[in-house]
């Protein structure tokens, strides 16, 4: 029986390894973590399918997590080297395990939202103040949590004006679809699943509330220190994958569908297109721009993470938020920029 389990595990590894193809020179292993069936993880999948890691001399070993918190917990034992996750758990990772923020996966502001059930959405939308006194179910310490509280703020409500119950995304969907909760903090593609299968409606996203909710590309500090060149190569592959996905819509959607299927998410093609159209990504120049710090000042990304840190501090997650400029670094993006070969690779869209 154990053998069967190992066989299953081996099959999983083979899935990742299959993409490597036949490359002559020995490949360097890099352990990449992400979450299945989310928009910002599609580039990992696409790059593996296309064999771009191998082109950079990397051999990716993937591990996936159902949420950001277990993902950063696993980083403590060195289970992965680099990866992507929501900005809120990433900040927690920076506070607890010196996780480095080496880039922005994409702008997730429109993908994190308060969703209301079909029955109640219209009245809440018409009169947001009526949210006062309601119960909102959300996943604590997530980007969804951040979006919910930003929306409350926009509506002039305090956290204490509502009852907040924390649970996993799947439980939230169960509770809402069975009419046991009217308001939930969800992120895409769960928002789309709720809309398509239950007629629920997104009534306020992070974007609507004026909050920047980025997705984070991260690296373990120890690893980044020892292997900066691998981190830069990994980033270059990620950037190229976004370029390709953005430039080849129909193929990108087909790939996304396959990837989501593997992660057990079935949403319509229209929703997938919406994921692309509502959640901007950054190419190399864009990354460098938002991460650029004026002398003595703060970058745009620093600002985002300072706000997120303040939100988490107010939540009581940690007594003092880590300083954004201590864990946000554009060093690895700059490495790509400085290396013509890497830069050319990162900017390719084919």
């Amino acid at each position: 029986m154990m053998r069967r389990h190992i066989a299953a595990a081996a099959a999983g590894i083979a899935l990742g390894a299959a993409a490597i193809g036949t490359h002559a020179q020995p490949l360097t292993e890099i352990k990449i973590s992400y979450q299945p069936a989310v928009y910002w993880a599609v580039p990992f999948y696409a790059a593996a399918e296309k064999g771009w890691y191998a082109e950079m001399g990397l051999k990716p070993v993937f591990s996936t997590f159902p949420a950001g918190v277990p993902q950063i917990a696993a980083s403590a034992s060195g289970s992965w080297d680099v990866g992507a996750l929501g900005s809120v758990p990433a900040t927690l990772g920076a506070a607890r395990y010196h996780l480095l923020m080496i880039g922005i996966s994409n702008d997730e502001s429109d993908g994190n939202a308060i969703v209301a059930t079909a029955k109640t959405a219209a009245s809440f939308e018409k009169n947001p103040a009526s949210v006062k006194g309601q119960t909102i179910v959300l996943t604590a310490n997530s980007t969804g949590d951040y979006a919910v509280q930003s929306c409350l703020h926009k509506w002039g409500l305090q956290k204490t004006d509502v009852t907040i119950k924390s649970m996993g995304q799947a439980e939230i969907m169960s509770a809402m679809s069975s009419g046991n909760a009217d308001l939930g903090g969800l992120w895409a593609p769960n928002t789309y699943t709720m809309e398509e299968k239950t007629g629920a409606k997104q009534i306020c996203s992070g974007k609507d509330a004026g909050a920047a909710v980025p997705g984070a590309i991260v690296a373990r500090a120890d690893y980044a220190k020892e292997h900066p060149e691998n981190v830069a190569k990994f980033l270059a592959v990620y950037l190229r994958a976004w370029n390709w996905l953005n430039a080849h819509q129909p193929e990108a959607i087909a790939m996304m569908k396959k990837f989501y299927d593997q992660g057990g998410v079935t949403i319509s093609e229209a929703s997938m297109k919406k994921e692309f159209s509502t959640r901007p990504t950054y190419d190399l120049a864009g990354q460098l721009k938002i991460m650029k710090r004026p002398p003595g000042g703060k970058s745009e990304v620093d600002d985002w993470f300072t706000k997120i840190g303040a939100f988490m501090q107010a939540n009581g997650t940690f007594p003092k938020a880590p300083e954004a400029d201590k864990f946000v670094t554009d060093q690895y993006m700059k490495m790509i920029d400085a290396d013509p070969k890497l830069k050319a690779f990162a900017n390719r869209a084919d």
Partner: peptide, 18 residues
């Protein structure tokens, strides 16, 4: 709660497929 394979994971994914 945490896995990304196995029967428990299937259950969670079924749940999030409503």
């Amino acid at each position: 709660i945490v896995a990304s394979s196995g029967i428990g994971y299937l259950l969670v994914k079924g749940q999030s497929n409503i």
